[in-house]
Design a binder for these strands. Structure first.
Lengths: 170, 170
DNA sequence: CTTGGAAAGTCAACGAAGCTGACATAAAAT
DNA sequence: ATTTTATGTCAGCTTCGTTGACTTTCCAAG
């Protein structure tokens, strides 16, 4: 259990960052930071009567316009019943458009409408503002480290999704 | 909105890490990493019929044995009714002990029992294992950056709580 | 000593967002 | 023609958050 207790490698190099105490602080930092991370969008969403689930759907639909329901399902890792409830309200409210596939007519391709795009920009604007502020404070090298640790922490399947999104970069 | 678009400072230094695209990837990394972060404890908790809320209570009670309910409430940022439901089951199941305060008998001081401590070690063991693995892969400098960005991302009040916990170090 | 207010607990009701299971439909694939 | 896939929907359940109302206990100030 207390694997990092000795915290010294064979080469004598200090491994203080692998101490149980250090790791525990990392865990707590992750917990508190995530609450900050979601705080701003949550406030905005609440004004519109939406929740975090709507944000996630909006985010990924915006990220990959035209993605199918199944696609979104596997990125989000929820059941179709759960996603459907969210998606239905977004479609009813005119934020998301669901177009029947041309090649495969069973598929529905999801797009943000003008209104949907507006909300997306409002949400991601707030979230990015906080992230940008944190990045600025911490500096480029810290950001690189931040990203490295986060990637290493993901489940392999989620990392796959993450990297697929990365490939979408222009 | 697209504040980082130009991504060049007055000094000509590249600020690529502040690009909207970079920030967005940070947001997504945070989202996917947090899912990994909670995955292992969630599996264990489910076996015992508990949820994430129980984990949080157990974690912070362990971290500061003897803390009051009000204290825990303000760290967790939930309502007492919500916490009470969780706490009641933990007390009923013999994982947590609630002792009436000596100085102020209105206060309840919370402690993990032997059984509670066992579950705490099982949960944090799993969570720390993942965190440790990620730390090892990323290396000490990345870890330092990781922590810097996370701290900068917290709400001031949460950062206060985080730092208070830090002060508890031996 | 009495009274006001803080700390804690309880009951009820509700909402968001997960889940499972069962079933329907259309279209693609075999 | 049959099976599989993609999607949607209904019903019901669970966790965990919320608000509001109320009680009990107890400290502390008047």
């Amino acid at each position: 259990m207390a694997e990092g207790a000795i915290a010294t490698s064979q080469s004598g190099e200090s491994l203080l960052f692998l101490t149980d105490e250090q790791i525990r602080k990392g865990v707590e930092a992750m917990y508190f930071a995530y609450r900050g991370f979601t705080a701003d969008p949550d406030r905005i969403l609440h004004q519109y009567g939406y929740g975090r689930a709507h944000h996630r759907a909006i985010h990924f639909i915006n990220r990959s316009q035209g993605m199918t329901v199944n696609n979104l399902l596997s990125v989000l890792g929820v059941t179709k019943q759960s996603l459907n409830r969210v998606l239905r309200t977004l479609i009813e409210d005119g934020l998301v458009e669901s177009r029947i596939g041309k090649r495969d007519k069973r598929e529905r391709h999801l797009f943000l409408t003008e209104t949907g795009g507006k909300l997306e920009r409002e949400l991601s604007g707030a979230q990015r503002a906080r992230m940008r502020a944190a990045y600025r404070v911490a500096g480029p090298e810290a950001v690189a480290g931040f990203r490295q640790v986060l990637e290493a922490m993901m489940d392999p399947e989620l990392r796959r999704h993450f990297n697929t999104l990365k490939d979408n970069e222009a």
